[in-house]
Simulated assay, not measured.
Amino acid sequence: MKRILALLCSIAMVGFIFNPSYVDAATVNPKTLLEKKFPRERVTVSKSVDLNGDNKKEHLLITDSGNFYLINSKGVIVLIDTNYYSDEEPTIHILNISTKEKHVAVTLDYLPSNTELLVYKYQNGTLKKKLSVMGDVGINISKTGEIMQLWKSHYPEGGWEIAVAHYKWNSKKDKYVGSGELPR
């Protein structure tokens, strides 16, 4: 009888230790975590990165239904945005703004040449949108996080030329500041 009781206690303790609600978020596969909570979602794009310098990774996920999720380092799943559809697979970029700050940029490509760029800053366990631009001709992102938007400036009589707008993060203003030929 004592052996059976000891065996049952051992099984109960193992079950308690390995219960998913008690597993550290850093050890769980982010795709599995999201798909377990939202069974109809299928992750198509994912990236893991430490956004706030706490040596714990945050997980960025885009699903086939066009939803953009963040799983913060505490394992909390946050829906950031919807309608992330494009002709090509969306791309997640990490912008190194400074040694202590990184931003998340997502590019959505639409054929034949349009690119939409959405840039987010990590704040209080979620992502806040800081910039949204469309490049009719394209978008270029430098390693330092400077953004170049190439767009079509149309002539009144017809035709167009390439115009270039530059965006750089201004930490004092907490926003991206544009220069050059900004779209009207």
Rank of each mutant, 00 (worst) to 15 (best):
N83E: 15
N124C: 05
D87M: 10
F68D: 04
R42C: 10
D54S: 06
S10N: 01
L70G: 00
G135I: 07
S113K: 06
S65G: 02
K128T: 09
V164Q: 10
S48Q: 05
H166T: 15
E88N: 11
E35Y: 09
N96V: 04
I162H: 00
D64T: 12
E35C: 09
L182Q: 07
V119F: 07
N19A: 10
F38G: 03
T91P: 05
Y110L: 09
V106C: 05
L95Q: 05
Y84F: 15
E161V: 10
V23F: 01
I4K: 10
K128A: 14
L34E: 09
Y22I: 06
F38M: 06
W169H: 08
S142F: 00
I71E: 07
N96K: 15
L111F: 15
W151S: 00
T144R: 06
K36T: 15
L182N: 03
Y69P: 01
D136G: 15
A25F: 04
H59E: 10
I17H: 01
G125M: 07
S21P: 00
K37H: 12
V14K: 07
E89V: 14
I141R: 02
N29Y: 08
I97S: 03
P30F: 00
N19C: 11
N29R: 02
I71A: 03
E88C: 04
T144A: 14
L95Y: 04
K143Y: 05
H103L: 05
T32Y: 14
S179W: 05
E116D: 14
C9Q: 10
V177S: 07
R40L: 12
G135H: 00
K121I: 11
S153R: 03
S171Y: 13
L108C: 09
E101I: 14
G138L: 11
P156Y: 10
V133E: 14
I141V: 14
G125Q: 09
S10H: 04
V23K: 15
K37I: 12
F68M: 11
E161T: 14
W160Y: 15
T144H: 07
K57L: 09
F18M: 12
K74M: 10
D64C: 01
S113H: 13
G178F: 03
V14E: 02
L79I: 03
S21F: 13
N72K: 02
N19W: 13
A26N: 07
K130L: 09
Y22H: 11
N170F: 02
H103M: 13
E41C: 04
D87W: 12
H154S: 09
A6F: 10
Q149A: 02
W160P: 03
S65Y: 08
E157T: 14
E35S: 05
I77A: 05
D50A: 00
L5H: 01
Y84A: 01
E88F: 13
E181M: 11
P20G: 06
P183E: 08
K2A: 12
K152N: 11
H103R: 04
N124T: 13
S73F: 01
V45Y: 01
T144I: 09
L108I: 03
T63G: 01
A165S: 09
V164K: 15
I92L: 04
E161Q: 13
D64H: 08
